[in-house]
Amino acid sequence: MLVEQGETILRLYVLPPDGDHVGVILPLDALFEVRVQAALRLWRVLNGRPPGRDPGRLSSDRISRLILALRTLDGLDDGVSQREIAGILFGREVSAGDWLSHDLHFRMKRLARFAQGLTEGGYRRLLRHPFRRQ
């Protein structure tokens, strides 16, 4: 079976089960570690064992941060101030006079910067998670 998606080609050869051993060919390229982990998970499943932790799964903290970033973007797009967004997201109202020195001010600045980075193409890094260096 050959599946083409843009520049990515996935080749999967399925042999009929006749009791013979099956092999995996892994190219020694930049994604070798990814391929080894995928092959190991496949081997575990084929042998009736649990596949183990999925290395591509995002942590719950990372998921929470992404959700906060998306909500921040929604608020900023609707013209809501960062102070008001912080009050909604974190459940703490901060007066306008205290805002510039409040810890939520700096947290919102970082969150807004992260969210803006996602809109400028940073979301593509999620597709390479956790293998961002390759």
Rank of each mutant, 00 (worst) to 15 (best):
I67M: 06
R65W: 03
Q82E: 12
Q82H: 09
A96C: 09
G79Q: 02
L66D: 05
L100P: 07
F90V: 00
L58H: 06
S81V: 00
E84P: 00
G48K: 01
G87F: 01
D77Q: 13
H105C: 12
G52K: 05
R49P: 07
S60A: 13
I85K: 03
R53I: 09
R57Y: 00
S59N: 03
R62H: 13
R71E: 15
W99D: 03
L100F: 11
L73M: 14
L68I: 00
I67D: 09
D61A: 14
H102P: 05
I85W: 00
D61I: 08
S60F: 12
G56R: 07
R83L: 00
E93S: 14
G87M: 03
T72H: 10
G87N: 03
G79L: 02
F90L: 07
L58R: 06
S60R: 14
P55N: 05
R57M: 12
G52W: 05
I67P: 04
S59G: 11
P55F: 02
D98P: 10
R62V: 08
S64L: 12
D61K: 15
W99F: 03
D54H: 03
R49H: 14
G52Y: 07
G48A: 04
A69S: 05
G56W: 02
I88K: 12
S95G: 15
R107I: 11
E93N: 12
M108S: 05
G91L: 06
M108L: 07
P50T: 09
G91C: 06
D78C: 11
N47T: 08
L73H: 12
P50D: 13
R49F: 11
T72E: 09
